Amino acid sequence: MTKVQINTGFSYSVLIEKGLFQKIGPLLKNEIKGKALVLTDERVGNLYADLILKQLKESEIQGDIYRVKEGEDSKSLCVYGEILEYMAANNYHRNDTLISLGGGVIGDLGGFVAATFQRGMEYIQMPTSLLAAVDSSVGGKTALNLREGKNLVGAFKQPLAVYCDPEVFKSMERERFADGVAESIKYGILFDRDLFNLFKSPLTKEDERLEELVEKAVKHKAEVVARDEFEKDERKLLNLGHTIGHSIERASGFKITHGHAVAIGMAVMAKACSKRQILKETERDEILEVLKKNDLPTDTSFSVEVLFEHIYKDKKSDGKNITIVEIEEIGKCRLKKIPLLSFKEYIEEGIDDCRDCS
């Protein structure tokens, strides 16, 4: 079993091991003091809910399941309110624990429920997607979407623990698995040329490297979060590709999934940085090639105007300025605060160049 310590205001561990969910009971018993509510979606619930309930029962923990529909639509105020009403009606209290069993949507939703129910209760992250394992389950960001944009309501709430079983990635759809690959490639572009190079051989759901890759990505995030828990400065680097990515998700009505949209966002920034002579053309081409090798897109059919309309409402913008992530080289990026309208030029350059080189 691999252990990564997350040293925030509240420190906790990320445990990574294939087959971990099959023996999770003693770990849950060690953390949970009252009842447990397992929040999951319909697909993941059908696969793993009975297993987790069995583990809870064997550990003498009273447990129940709450299922929501799969997808971004469940990160809404309406669904959030329904969960709170269910918990209140079924006598859950602050000393009970919520378990987020699922991907990024469930982790974000469950974390926000935990941050706000009775002014805060404990929760545990059990990511079942590669994306959630390497990114959203670690670091304490929780969020809901509004009609006007993604993740516009949220709070910072660190979990009691994160339990990751890479074995469950085998049940993922290929497209959803690729979402997590995109987020993993992001860490290579940001911090680690060696990690990036691992993706030159495409990652698969059965890959023996999965446990190692999750560990490397989580360690990089842990280091950043320890220095900047509340995203005042350095943690903004983790938004590489996300500003453009979120706008693509919104423009598509979330038909384009998060990781695919982020991949496009990273490609656009790589091209724009290359055009501005910040990033070498050879490294730009490496980034595009690695994304394509891992079945990820590098271009969008949406116009600059459509994307910029959504970017204007992005939470990383203050209405006049926006902090962007420029790629200097693979393994090294930097933050830059620029006027919002100047970012439109980056998008124009990146989209035009992506089409030229696709």
Rank of each mutant, 00 (worst) to 15 (best):
Met1Ser: 14
Gln5Leu: 15
Ile6Thr: 05
Tyr12Asp: 13
Val14Ile: 09
Pro26Lys: 00
Lys29Phe: 00
Lys35Trp: 03
Val38Glu: 00
Val38His: 00
Glu42Asp: 15
Lys57Gly: 02
Asp64Glu: 15
Ile65Thr: 05
Val68Ser: 02
Gly71Cys: 04
Glu72Thr: 02
Ser74Ala: 13
Gly81His: 09
Leu84Asp: 09
Tyr92Leu: 11
His93Thr: 14
Leu101Val: 06
Gly102Cys: 05
Ala115Cys: 01
Thr116Asp: 13
Gln118Ala: 13
Gln118Gly: 02
Glu122Gln: 14
Thr128Asp: 02
Ser137Gln: 00
Lys141Phe: 09
Asn145His: 04
Arg147Lys: 13
Pro159His: 11
Ser171Phe: 07
Met172Ser: 13
Lys186Asp: 04
Leu195Ala: 10
Asn197Tyr: 08
Thr204Asn: 15
Lys205Ala: 12
Glu211Phe: 02
Ala217Leu: 10
His220Gln: 11
Val224Pro: 06
Glu229Cys: 00
Leu237Cys: 09
His242Ser: 14
Thr243Tyr: 03
Ile248Asn: 02
Ala251Ser: 12
Ile256Ser: 01
Val262Trp: 02
Ile264Val: 15
Glu281Asn: 14
Glu283Val: 10
Lys292Pro: 09
Ser301His: 13
Ile311Thr: 01
Tyr312Lys: 15
Lys313Tyr: 15
Asp314Thr: 08
Ile322Asp: 03
Ile322Gln: 07
Ile338Pro: 03
Leu340Asp: 08
Glu348Cys: 05
